[in-house]
Write a protein that binds this DNA or RNA. Structure first.
Lengths: 325, 325
DNA sequence: CGAGAGAATTGTAGCGCTACAAGACAGAAG
DNA sequence: CTTCTGTCTTGTAGCGCTACAATTCTCTCG
């Protein structure tokens, strides 16, 4: 900065103001400074600036996976929101809670303006760190027991809505595919909600099969096989993701079963594949873009000193009805 | 830090050393300092530390999209490499070159240890900035005309290898699906390579159809329709991505065409869907994880002052043969 | 028992920038 | 011609940390 100041014939403060407070500097002076900076490839050192000003315009987000298009929309939502407010977003991939902890420590070390996490399952050490910091924290995709703030939707409510949708189609023999093993809590919330809905409707709540999360499309055929054995006249299968649902649809194709006439199928997540395959998948669409946007908004509101009153935002969901169910 | 030092009864320097140079501090003292820090949720301010030491252990990467699993493996490769060397990786999503420019400016402002980009298509302003900085720059997925360093594979060579693979299956009527409009150069490299290979083999090089990149799976049916009209006896379709190839396979299912007997199909990218659908897709697999790893390695080598001699690394590719072709 | 070597610890200065207060300067009013 | 006002510009101090040199504190050895 010293160098640029000298080259432009002004003081370092004027250089600083040219970048950060354009209105404080005369137009002509500012343009000259910016020109000199551009000529020399000078970019203000944010680390130093943030240190001096005690604030940061960078928000850190930890995302567990970048494999599905819901997360893509979620990230876009965050990116769009930060861009609209002159902030920056930095992302770290973390597939395990241990990686998440490392990422959180890094963000805290960088003194980011806020941290956005996915889910509410963290290492005890992470929770400890998060509770002690004054940095705004937002947990997304869930709305229970936030450490600080949360943005998400109610998985149980979405499950009930999906069951009601298939009931309204006149379907009664409803099979449910869930994930077995150590999976995120937002998956485990679905089964009890399904059972409850079925009992309320006076229908069999036990047409349930659990598959491995790692099986991808492959989980479809095995789930279909298992549920068909439980009830050969099964009418519809509710899947934990659109990937599994697509696997079921492909398997129906192989078996020569018409979808939805012989078997209806519903997915979850409204991934890209849901609208691309034939028949299109009926699925639950979380408002992923909105969720990302709201998460950033919560951080910014907190930074602006606004009331921390409503710390939980429900971005809702929609049951998207396509041809598969 | 002052606070922690006081609480632990040592000087600030000892606190600093406890974190950064454990060997300089007596075990007992170090543990006490770390304990006090943990109790108070203290995390050293990296911005200040980096400023004082004049170095950074953070590498910035700009990625254009997180929609496909190749990029996922690529990011994992980078993440694994930085983790192995005690560095951190921060990601920014940028779908346009303008967004990329903003991201690059942010990284430069953060004084990262290195910047990793995808492709070699950038804004003139970005190139200018990149040439003037002394920060190591790596461009990935391409190996032509790097600004600084590059890691990638030769798309033309992979195209030729794919054509040879289908030729070796005895197929002769080969259709090609490309992307129309403003697409990344790595897509545009494929068509000339295809034409050349076909001419060398003495076969029709004009069974070509261009589709819109945004069409996803939907591009499959329209491409199939168009190529079938060009040559009703077409034997194989080479697609620009596995998504398009999957779209073609699904469409074949609808038409009752057996794959690969009636029509063989090849994709590109070895996305997850390639191995999940039936029949599995024959496709080109870029060594995405390796590419990410090598990109980080190049940055670290440069940081370690090692020779900048070999600045281009070819991570190669593989033609993965599955049932579809 | 004092000198010397080595380990552990501690001041000092400064990284590049910004907040804030103070200064310079032009033009308007008296 | 002085005073005042408002605009533009500039010193000063310090953000939280680390490199480096200096210091203190063992402990060993002649």
């Amino acid at each position: 900065m010293q160098f640029v100041a000298k080259a432009a014939g002004v003081s370092p403060m004027t250089v600083s103001n040219s970048f950060r407070h354009p209105e404080r500097v005369q137009e002509e002076t500012r343009l000259r400074v910016l020109q000199v900076a551009a000529d020399h490839g000078y970019v203000p050192n944010r680390a130093a600036g943030d240190l001096a000003s005690g604030q940061s315009r960078v928000i850190g987000a930890v995302i567990p996976s970048i494999k599905n298009s819901s997360f893509y929309r979620y990230v876009r939502g965050m990116q769009d929101a930060v861009a609209a407010h002159g902030y920056e977003l930095i992302l770290t991939l973390a597939d395990t809670t241990v990686q998440e902890h490392v990422a959180v420590a890094t963000f805290l070390g960088l003194r980011v303006a806020g941290i956005i996490l996915v889910g509410n399952e963290h290492e005890p050490a992470t929770i400890d760190l998060l509770r002690k910091t004054s940095v705004p924290i937002v947990e997304t995709w869930v709305i229970h027991d936030p450490i600080d703030m949360a943005v998400g939707y109610c998985v149980a409510a979405a499950t009930r809505a999906l069951v009601e949708t298939v009931l309204s189609r006149g379907l009664r023999r409803i099979g449910f595919v869930g994930y077995a093993g150590e999976v995120s809590r937002r998956f485990t919330e679905r089964l009890p909600a399904f059972r409850e809905s079925m009992e309320t409707a006076g229908l069999r709540p036990d047409l349930v099969h659990l598959v491995d999360e790692a099986d991808g499309f492959g989980a479809g055929p095995s789930a279909l096989e298992a549920l068909h054995r439980l009830d050969p006249a099964i009418e519809v299968v509710l899947c934990p993701t659109d990937i599994v649902a697509a696997g079921v649809v492909f398997e129906c194709g192989r078996r020569g079963w018409a979808v939805p006439e012989r078997l209806a199928v519903a997915g979850w997540g409204d991934y890209e594949i849901a609208s691309e395959i034939t028949p299109g998948l009926t699925t639950v669409q979380p408002n992923a873009h909105d969720m990302g946007w709201q998460a950033v908004t919560l951080v910014l509101n907190r930074a602006a000193g606004e009331a921390a009153a409503e710390t939980v935002v429900d971005t809702g969901f929609a049951v998207v009805c396509r041809a598969s169910a």
